[in-house]
Simulated assay, not measured.
Amino acid sequence: MDTSFVERRPDGRTKTLDTRQYTLGYSEGEFKRLQLQGDFVRDLTEDVLRRAGLKQGMHVLDLGCGVGDVSLLAGQLVGPSGSVLGIDRSQDAVEAAERRAVEAGQCYWVRFASADLASFVPERKFDAIIGRLVLMYLREPAETLRRLAGFLRPGGIVAFQEMSMPFARSVPTTPLFTQVLGWIVRAFARTGFETDMGGKLFSTYLAAGLPVPQMISGARVEGGGESLGFEYIAQTVRSLIPAMERTGITTAAEIGIDDLADRLREEAVAHGACIMFPPMTGAWICSQQ
């Protein structure tokens, strides 16, 4: 995948952008968006973790934990007799996750650390390695899985969930939703990240030297004006505005972020539209394999 993008300056000169930074940024607004996302797809993630075999007493490593949603969910499944370590490259995200663990009463067995996945070396072995929407951001996801799988106990679990962005749609097709989806997909693609990691999970597991995984795919499907999905879309666009402007996709003025959620909602209601969000695909190898 090409991970560079050439920016043309007003004076005609060009420079190559560093596109391996997290596309959505590390703002307080992004952290709130991550929590909204966590609430929005929680059931889909919990289903994958339960199918994978997470249970009381297990010790779990959560890669790319962000503000802690998946770590806290795993913490509920393993309970205080187990443990979860969530790692993320952003110290600010880790601090937000730690505060949430305290608020949830899980801080004694769900902990967090700031680390780069490319060089992270845990001090112990785990019963499970998990992650959601993290492999899509890695330059070599299979190599990362191969390396970290070495820190699994025999018969351990590897469970990841990734999305397939291009498969989101509105039925019937509506112009604003189509435009916004195009902005989002292009922003990730132009900044060098995988927009269909869900579709590539199977081959990634095999390339990592892991057994053939079990897999399942599911998606949120929303209709009507009460859906949180419109705010989720708008907040995703808000976090992507710097990347969209930097890569020439669109501008903040064209987006009109302040009322984007309302306009998406009004369009969907006016057309009686069903919004089919990106499929979330889970893949896991179980302790029985």
Rank of each mutant, 00 (worst) to 15 (best):
A142V: 05
M244N: 08
P122G: 04
L206K: 15
S217F: 00
F120Q: 01
V121N: 03
G131H: 02
D116E: 03
R89T: 14
Q35A: 11
V41F: 08
D11A: 03
L133A: 04
G218F: 00
G248W: 06
I233F: 07
G223W: 01
G105S: 03
E226Q: 00
E267D: 12
T16E: 02
M197C: 06
A113N: 03
T23S: 10
I275F: 02
L210M: 01
G105C: 06
A118T: 01
P175R: 04
V67C: 11
T204K: 01
R147K: 09
Q161M: 13
S239E: 10
P141R: 08
V110A: 01
G57M: 10
Q76C: 12
F202N: 08
T144Q: 12
F160V: 14
V180R: 00
G272N: 02
G248V: 15
F120P: 11
T14L: 03
P242T: 06
E103M: 06
V237A: 04
I129W: 06
A283E: 03
L133T: 02
V67D: 06
Q37K: 11
L138V: 00
M276R: 02
G68K: 07
D258Y: 12
S239W: 06
P141K: 07
R99P: 00
L117R: 03
M215I: 14
G209N: 07
S71G: 12
G156N: 03
G282C: 05
V269E: 14
F202R: 11
G272D: 12
M163F: 14
V158T: 15
G224L: 02
I275P: 09
T195Q: 11
V221Q: 01
D92Q: 12
A149E: 07
Y137Q: 00
V269T: 09
I249N: 13
G82H: 12
F202M: 08
L240M: 15
I257F: 10
G12F: 12
V60M: 14
I241F: 14
P242V: 04
I184Q: 09
L44T: 11
S114K: 05
T144R: 07
D116L: 05
V180F: 05
D262N: 11
T195C: 14
A149R: 09
F230Y: 15
V110R: 03
Q91C: 04
S164Q: 10
R89M: 09
V78K: 08
A208C: 13
E98C: 02
L152Q: 07
V70D: 10
D47F: 13
V134F: 09
G131Q: 05
L240G: 10
G75E: 08
S119T: 14
A159H: 08
D92G: 08
P279T: 02
E140S: 10
A52R: 09
D2R: 00
F188Y: 15
R33M: 13
R9W: 10
L54T: 02
S27Q: 13
G182W: 02
K125F: 08
F230I: 00
L24Y: 00
A208P: 15
M276H: 07
D88N: 11
I241R: 06
T178H: 05
I129M: 07
F5A: 00
R190D: 14
E98G: 01
Y232H: 13
G64N: 09
W109N: 07
E7F: 09
S287H: 14
L152E: 08
F151M: 06
A253K: 10
A142P: 11
G75Q: 05
T45W: 02
E98A: 05
G86K: 11
M136D: 01
V70I: 13
